[in-house]
Design a protein around this nucleic acid. Structure first.
Lengths: 340, 340
DNA sequence: AAAACAATTGTAAGCGCTTACAGTGATGTC
DNA sequence: GACATCACTGTAAGCGCTTACAATTGTTTT
C-alpha cells in the first residue's frame, strides 16, 4: 500500500488552469508577459495544488540557478558567521540564494567543495583569502564561473576581491605594543599554512619588531588552531619561556580570550603583568575582562560589498575590481606599558 | 568574441571513451556492473576532460539527491554550529551531503526555507524543536519527505526526534539554586514565542519555584534575544529590581556570559553578591570568570544520532523513533548560596 | 555442439522545467 | 478593406543525467 505521494508539477498546474506549461512558467517568472486574467487563473491553480517549482529542473532548463556558493573556513568563528550573514541578506535582495559550505580550516578540502558547489549550478562563488593553487582558478575560469575573494587582500594580486590588508592592519597594533615599551613579545598565531590571513598578521608583527630593532625569537611564536582552549594552552606555554613576555599578541580575538582566561587562572594580571591583544573585534572582545585591545574589521560591510561585486560579475556588469576596506586599532584595557 | 566556455557532459565523456552514456553513468555510480577495462577507459576520459557531473541533472533523473537539508535558528550560536558539524560528518560517511539554512530565530521564515530545501530535492530534513504549525508537517508528509526533530523532545509527541527534555534538564538546576537558599531569583530567558526550548526551560524554572513555595514574579523574568549584549542589558535591569535577586538564571550560556561581564562592570561580585547560571555548556562557559555553572548538553552526539535516524528513515529502514539524550548539571563557580 | 545462462553494453524514454519560434486574434493604419 | 502590429499563448526542442529493457557477447551445462 505504498501510496506514492504525488508531487504536483508544472504540467498539473497547466492542466488545472487550462493553459499550456509555457504559460504557467511565464506566470511564475515573467508575470509582465501574461494577461491579468490568465495570471490569476494560474495562480489560483498553483495555490490549490500547493505547487512548488522543482529547483533542479528549473536550473537545468534555464542554465542558471540564481544561487551563489560560499566556502568559509568555519561557521564556528563569529566573524565569518557575521560576514556571511550580511552577504546572504544582500544577495537575497538581489534575488539570489546562498549555499554555504565550510572546510573546517582544511584547505585541501576546498577544491572538492568548489566542485560540488559548481556541479550544483552555482552562478558564482565567494572564497576566503588568496591561498589556493592556480589549478583551482583555472577550473573556475574554464567554466566561466565568477568568484570574489574576501577577508584578505594582497598587494599585487588582481582577482576581484573585497577585503583588508591583514598585514597593514596588524602593523599599527604591533607598532603600538612596541612603542609602549614592550621588548619581549610572545605571539599566538593561527596556523599559517594555507591561510594567508594568519600568515600576513604574523609577518606584520615580525616586521614591526625587526623595524624597531627587536630580534624575533621563533621560540616565542606559537601557531595553533583558532579556538579558546588553544589560546589558553599556548598562553601558558609562552609564560614559561625565559625571558617571560610582557605582551602576548594573538592572531585573533578567540585566541586572545583564551589567553586572558588562562592568565586569570594563573594569577597573572592583565595588563599589569602581561598585555594581551587580539584581532577582529568580535562581540566577545568587549565582554572579556579586561576588555580586549584589538583591531576592528568591518565584517558586515565586507559581506555586503562582496555581494555587490559578485552579482555585478555574474550579470556582466563591471569587471575585476578590488575593494580595500579600512581597519582600525581599538584601544581597550588589555594593553598597557610593561611593568618597569 | 564571447567564447562560451563549454563544460564537458556525460555525452562528451562517452564519446571520448567510445562507449554509450549509460555505460559512463554506470562507471560513475555502479562500478561493479562494469568490466574492468571499460571502467579504466572511461575514468581516463573523465580525467582528461575534467568532467564533473551535473548535480541538478542527476538529481532530476534519479529522483533523489543524496542531499539532506537542515534548518537551524542561527549559525552564530556555537551549540548549533557544533551539533550540525557532527551531523554533517556522520552524513558524509553515509554518502549524503548537507545543505544548511538558518532562519535567524524568525520562525515565520522556516516554512519558506523548508520549501526551498524541498524544491532543491532534499531527501530528508533536520529541523530544530517542535514548534511549527501542522500545515508544515502535512506538507512534508504529502511529499513523502522524512524529517527528524532535534534539540528538543516533548513528552507526548510522536515525531521522530533526538533530543533532550529541556524542561526536565533545567529542573535540577533550578532545584539546586533554590535548595541553596535563593529566594529572589531573576531569569533571563530567550524569546519564548516559537521556541519550545526556551519556553520549556523557563517553565521548568517557574515550576520549580512554585513547587518550593516561591511566588513567580513576572517582573523578574526578562525575555530577550540570545546574545551577549542582551545578557548584559537584561542583567542590569534585573539588578535594579527590588528586592534584588540573589541569583539570575539564564536561558543559555551566551546570556549568562553577558550577565557575568556586566556584573563585573557594575562591581557586583559573582557568586558572592549574585549567582548566575547558564545552559548548554558551550566552550566559553568554562572560560568566563567565574566559570559558569550550567547544564551540559551532548550536542555532538545529538548531531550524530540525528544523522543515523534520518538516513534510516530515508532508506526505508526503521520507523519513527524517539531518542532521549541525557543532560547533566555542571557545577562550576558561578553558583553558591546567597549571602546571609 | 546446442541450449541456457550470466555478464556487459547499448537504446531510448523520460525527470520537470525554460524558451525560441510559430501561431492566433484583436487592434490600428493607410 | 488589406495589411502591419501588438499582445498573448501554444508547440516542441532540449537541459544532462539515470535506468528499464533489449541486444550482444562470452561461459557453462548437458
Amino acid at each position: 500500500m505504498n501510496r506514492q505521494p504525488s508531487i504536483p508539477t508544472l504540467e498539473d498546474v497547466a492542466q488545472a488552469a487550462g493553459v499550456s506549461t509555457a504559460t504557467v512558467s511565464r506566470c511564475l517568472n515573467e508575470k509582465e508577459k501574461v494577461s491579468k486574467s490568465t495570471l490569476s487563473k494560474v495562480m489560483e491553480a498553483v495555490e490549490n495544488l500547493g505547487y512548488t517549482p522543482n529547483f533542479n529542473a528549473r536550473a537545468m532548463a534555464a542554465r542558471r540557478s540564481n544561487t551563489i556558493g560560499a566556502i568559509i573556513p568555519t561557521m564556528e568563528n563569529a566573524i565569518f558567521a557575521r560576514g556571511i550573514q550580511a552577504f546572504q541578506v544582500a544577495l537575497h535582495e538581489k534575488g539570489y540564494n546562498l549555499l554555504v559550505s565550510s572546510n573546517v580550516y582544511r584547505p585541501e578540502l576546498e577544491t572538492e567543495l568548489i566542485k560540488s558547489l559548481v556541479s550544483r549550478g552555482a552562478d558564482g562563488l565567494l572564497l576566503i583569502g588568496h591561498s589556493r593553487d592556480s589549478e583551482t582558478y583555472q577550473y573556475l575560469e574554464r567554466r566561466g564561473i565568477p568568484s570574489v575573494l574576501a577577508w584578505s587582500m594582497q598587494p599585487g594580486q588582481t582577482h576581484t576581491c573585497v577585503g583588508f590588508d591583514n598585514r597593514a592592519s596588524m602593523h599599527p597594533l604591533a607598532d603600538k605594543v612596541i612603542e609602549l615599551g614592550h621588548r619581549h613579545i610572545g605571539v599566538i598565531s593561527g596556523i599559517v599554512e594555507g591561510n594567508d590571513r594568519a600568515q600576513s598578521r604574523l609577518e606584520a608583527i615580525k616586521d614591526s619588531m625587526t623595524a624597531h630593532g627587536l630580534t624575533v625569537d621563533p621560540d616565542m611564536i606559537i601557531q595553533t588552531f583558532y579556538d579558546l582552549d588553544n589560546g589558553s594552552i599556548a598562553f601558558e606555554q609562552l609564560m614559561q619561556k625565559v625571558p617571560t613576555p610582557t605582551a602576548v599578541m594573538c592572531g585573533n580575538d578567540v585566541l586572545a580570550a583564551g589567553a586572558i582566561a588562562k592568565a586569570r587562572e594563573m594569577g597573572i594580571k592583565v595588563p599589569e603583568d602581561v598585555s594581551i591583544t587580539g584581532f577582529d573585534d568580535i562581540e566577545l572582545a568587549k565582554h572579556v575582562y579586561p576588555a580586549l585591545t584589538t583591531v576592528h574589521v568591518p565584517h558586515r560591510e565586507m559581506g555586503r560589498r562582496a555581494a555587490d561585486l559578485l552579482v555585478d560579475l555574474i550579470e556582466d556588469r563591471g569587471s575585476a575590481s578590488i575593494i580595500q576596506l579600512d581597519t582600525e586599532v581599538v584601544m581597550r584595557d588589555s594593553l598597557s606599558p610593561p611593568k618597569t
